[in-house]
Structure formats: structure tokens, C-alpha cells
Design a protein around this nucleic acid. Structure first.
Length: 478
RNA sequence: CGGAAAGUAGCACAAUUUGGUAGUGCACUACGUUCGGGACGUAGAGGUUGCAGGUUCAAAUCCUGUCUUUCCGACCA
């Protein structure tokens, strides 16, 4: 391997944080702005987000949701209606205090999330069980005044999607909460090729104002956890606080049951950190803005003809592609294609064309094959499927190899100190143990998985030794 | 928000120690030759040294403040 190829990207194993920063910049996903924590998502990065949007939005619509657009300002009094909610978010909201030169009567925050706005609206439009369920979603930006910021992983201005729904029964709302979580889970696995754990958050980690929070937990290449999506069950907490009522089938006034769920451009960060390598980004075919990059080597009629034939075939198969026609040398173009993570590269040059062939290279393994020009698209279609599957399998294997199952606290301590990854243990369910593990080991609870959550082995809490209630994942997090 | 480091052309850096009016490589533009793993020639363009004050005859250089970035902690999607 030639060292020149990676001269601008720090090695992943040498300095993972720096590697991440290098990749998001060099792959043209993002640029910094002059405001801390407000990043510029460049066309290539935004195209990934657009694909995410398109795929998820279809799923949301399929399950009956409608898109709306709410205001971005929340009057202070509105934010304060639900006590736990304001307590959770007040420390990190941005305030607008002036309109032009005049001080506002009441300051307003820029939405850190829109529960309060939706509730304020729902109160006015819900009066009967016939108005339910109300299934809304919005794509928007929110602001949370984070202290430390990193592109995609933690910014102050966050591009996301937030679903807000109202239901006439607890069962229906809970079903909705889990249904949306499942959509996120499937999306991560099938589209992003990211293996995830889904489960319930602890009381300590749940959303401010929620009765229960469920999350999608992914492991990055370095073993650190990233929460990739959440779905909350609110019960009647907000609807009571906001006095939202509907007349049920028995002609009785009742507060509706509520959910909210969301995911952000952080998922782009996850893509980078799960699949990327020392050469740059590696995108799973199903989310890549361009599935194929074509690199003509030299130019003559034969090359042009082959190029034309291949691009026509790609179009017929609806495979997105890009042609690198710049006057760079082939080596330069190969490296650039690798930094940008196009799943497949097609090289068209005279050497291969003597045998009527083109060279196809997969980004994930860098394997090269020569195939006849007329069969290029058949091969591409086959490879796209293989790449998608292989990327998931590789990520799954790596993740599973970084999960530890200690029986004693000392063992856990040792793992936390020397290894990175997830730690799966019995837990008593008490916040005191959760706090102790956080303080002493630097690990936070990730989630209580839906499956296999019953305590195993001695059935005692890893931390206090008392009777365990459940199994739980612990990890360092981004 | 604490601790450390950095900001000079799009990028990487030099000139800062010892104040004297900004340079190199890559990238960029035009033309030509090239093209299978980061090409070459010729010509050219690009800077009030992050910003704001201060010291000085003179500031990229010294001082103060501020903003931004990176890394490490604490806090959080």
C-alpha cells in the first residue's frame, strides 16, 4: 500500500478522534462556520441526510404520519408548563431577548425540542376521540447550547426529525412508541448497515418529562456508544400539564396519551465511525448519494463509447453514479474516490478495453475484478447487495467482539480500565449503583434490552450485590 | 464550563525566540504534453497575518481582551 494515499488522514488506530475530524472534513461532508457548534453540512453530507430523510419520511407516511412545521420560538411561560421538561432543558436553551432594538416583554427560547409547541397546538385542535390518533412529524432544526461540540456528533444547531403523536389509550400510545423505535432499528440495520441494541433507558437517562424512553444504541469502531435515535412514551404527563382533553367514546373527558420520537444528522457521524477506515469514508450502498464513481483513464473514442454504454446501463437500472472527468491522474482520482467512500468504483481505460473489459473495485474490501463492459451493471448490482450485507456483518462481528460479560465488580472495573466496548451485566435497578458506576468507571447505562433482559448467573447486581432486576448495557458514550 | 494547545493564501507550514512592512510546497487559472495508485512544462492569480484594543518611529512578531478550532475532563441527542 502506498503511504501517499492516506497522507491527509490520521490513522484510525493512532488517534480516533483526529481521524474522525479528518474524514468528515476531507470527504467534504462538513465545514466549520464562524459560530461554535453550528456546522455547515456540505452538499455531499447533505445528500446523505436527504437519503435518510427520504427513506424515513416514506416509513413515517406509510404508518399514517403527516408532516407539519411548527414555530421555532417558545415563550418562556410555555416552556415552563411541564416541570420536569423545563428542568431538563432550561440549562441548555438559547434565549431571544430583543426584537430589533426593543426588549421583549417575555423572552423566548429557540426550540430545543418541540413538545411544548405541539401541546399548545394540540390543546386547540383536539376535542374528541375522533380527532385521535393525531400523528404528526416535523423536519426542522433545534438549538441546544452544548458546551463541547463536534461535527454531527454534538452541535448546538441540530438538524433532525421529531414525531409527536396523541392517542386515546395508553396501549395505543405505547404501541406507537415501540412501532417508531422499530422503524429506526430497521433503518439502522438495513439501510445504514449499523448493528444496534434497542431497549429501555433507565429512569436517570430518560427524556425530561417522559414516562419511558427507548433508544437505539450503536457501537462505534472505537468501542464508544452512540445513541442514534430515541422514542418516548409520555403517558398523560404533558397532556395534563397542558390541559389537553378529549371526549372519549363513553362521553367522558380524558387526557390523551402522547409519544415523541426523533433522530438527527448524528446518524451521519455514526456512519463515519462505524464503517470508515484509514482511507476515509465507506458508505453502505443503500445510503450512498452515488453508488458508483466512474473514472475514465485517458480519453479516446473507445473509452467514450464504453463510458456511454455503462452509464446508459446504470441509468436503466436506476443506479446513481458520478463521473470523475477532472484532469487529475488516475491515482489521484482513486484516492479521492476512497476518501469519499463511494461503494463501487469503475475504472475505464484502454488496457482493459483491449479485452472489452472494465475494472470494478469495491470500496469496503478494495477487491478488484475485471468484467466485460456489457456485464458491468450486472456485476455492480450483485456487488451492491454483497457490500451492503458484508458491511453489516463486519460491523456486527466487531461489535459483538467488544461486548464483555463480567461476573464481579472487580472484573468489570478491570474491563472498564483496559478495554473499550459495551459491558453487559446484572443490575438491581437502583440509581445509586448507576451513579457509582458512572463515577468510578466512567460508564453510563445504555439500555435495558428488550430481549434476554432477565438476570443471569448469580442473579445479583454487579455493583451492590443485591438481587438483580434486569440485565443492562454499560459503555462510554459520545 | 475547567485544563492544555493552536489560528499567517483553499490546505500544510516558514518568518515570531531577537519588532523593520510576508515566503515555500501543494491546490487554483490559461495553454500544451500526459493518464492503470496522489504527473510535467510555460505563464498567472491569490494576504489589510482570526477579530478588537494597547505599547512603539515601526507589530505576523510584544501586551490585553475576544472569537474559532483541536485534544483531555465535567455536562448532554
Amino acid at each position: 500500500m502506498n503511504d501517499k494515499q492516506v497522507k491527509e488522514i490520521t490513522s484510525r488506530n493512532k488517534d480516533f478522534a483526529q481521524w474522525y475530524t479528518d474524514v468528515v472534513k476531507k470527504a467534504d461532508l462538513v465545514d466549520y462556520s464562524s459560530v461554535k457548534g453550528s456546522m455547515i453540512i456540505r452538499p455531499y453530507g447533505y445528500a446523505i441526510w436527504e437519503n435518510m430523510q427520504n427513506i424515513l419520511d416514506k416509513e413515517f407516511k406509510k404508518t399514517g404520519h403527516e408532516n407539519v412545521q411548527m414555530p421555532m420560538f417558545i415563550p418562556e411561560s410555555l416552556l415552563q408548563v411541564e416541570k420536569d421538561h423545563v428542568k431538563g432543558f432550561a440549562p441548555e436553551v438559547a434565549w431571544v431577548t430583543h426584537g430589533g432594538n426593543n426588549k421583549l416583554e417575555e423572552r423566548m427560547c429557540i426550540r430545543p425540542t418541540s413538545e411544548t409547541l405541539f401541546c399548545d397546538h394540540f390543546k386547540r385542535i383536539i376535542s374528541s376521540y375522533r380527532d385521535l390518533p393525531l400523528l404528526y412529524n416535523q423536519w426542522c432544526t433545534i438549538v441546544r447550547w452544548e458546551k463541547t461540540t463536534r461535527p454531527f456528533l454534538r452541535s448546538r444547531e441540530i438538524l433532525w426529525q421529531e414525531g409527536h403523536t396523541m392517542h386515546e389509550s395508553k396501549e395505543e400510545a405505547m404501541k406507537e412508541t415501540l412501532k417508531m423505535l422499530k422503524i429506526y432499528e430497521d433503518f439502522q440495520k438495513n439501510i445504514l448497515a449499523i448493528p444496534v441494541f434497542t431497549g429501555k433507558k433507565t429512569e436517570k437517562e430518560k427524556f425530561a418529562g417522559a414516562e419511558a424512553t427507548y433508544a437505539i444504541e450503536a457501537m462505534m469502531y472505537d468501542g464508544v456508544a452512540l445513541q442514534n435515535a430515541t422514542s418516548h412514551y409520555f403517558g398523560q404527563g404533558f397532556s395534563k400539564a397542558f390541559d389537553i382533553k378529549f371526549l372519549n367514546k363513553d362521553n367522558k373527558l380524558e387526557n390523551p396519551y402522547q409519544t415523541s420520537w426523533g433522530c438527527t444528522t448524528r446518524m451521519i457521524g455514526a456512519l463515519v465511525m462505524v464503517h470508515g477506515d484509514d482511507r476515509g469514508l465507506v458508505l453502505p450502498p443503500r445510503i450512498a448519494p452515488f453508488k458508483v464513481i466512474i473514472i475514465p483513464i485517458g480519453s479516446d473514442k473507445k473509452i467514450d463509447d464504453a463510458l456511454k454504454e455503462i452509464t446508459e446501463d446504470l441509468k436503466d437500472s436506476s443506479i446513481t453514479y458520478k463521473i470523475d472527468n477532472s484532469n487529475k491522474t488516475p491515482g489521484f482520482k482513486f484516492s479521492l474516490a476512497e476518501v469519499k467512500g463511494y461503494p463501487i468504483r469503475i475504472e475505464i481505460g484502454k488496457k482493459d478495453l483491449e479485452n472489452d473489459c472494465a475494472t470494478i473495485v469495491r470500496r469496503d474490501t478494495l477487491e478488484k475484478v475485471k468484467v466485460p463492459v456489457s456485464e458491468v451493471v450486472i456485476k455492480v448490482n450483485e456487488l451492491l447487495i454483497n457490500i451492503q450485507n458484508d458491511m453489516y456483518e463486519r460491523a456486527l462481528k466487531r461489535r459483538n467482539s467488544m461486548i464483555y460479560y463480567p461476573d464481579t465488580y472487580d472484573e468489570m472495573k478491570n474491563i472498564a480500565k483496559n478495554k473499550s466496548g459495551f459491558i453487559y451485566t446484572n443490575w438491581c435497578g437502583n440509581e445509586s449503583c448507576e451513579n457509582k458506576i458512572k463515577d468510578e468507571l466512567g460508564l453510563k447505562s445504555r439500555c435495558i434490552p428488550f430481549e434476554e433482559a432477565a438476570p443471569t448467573g448469580n442473579k445479583k447486581c454487579i455493583c451492590c450485590g443485591k438481587k438483580a432486576e434486569t440485565k443492562i448495557y454499560w459503555a462510554k458514550q459520545y
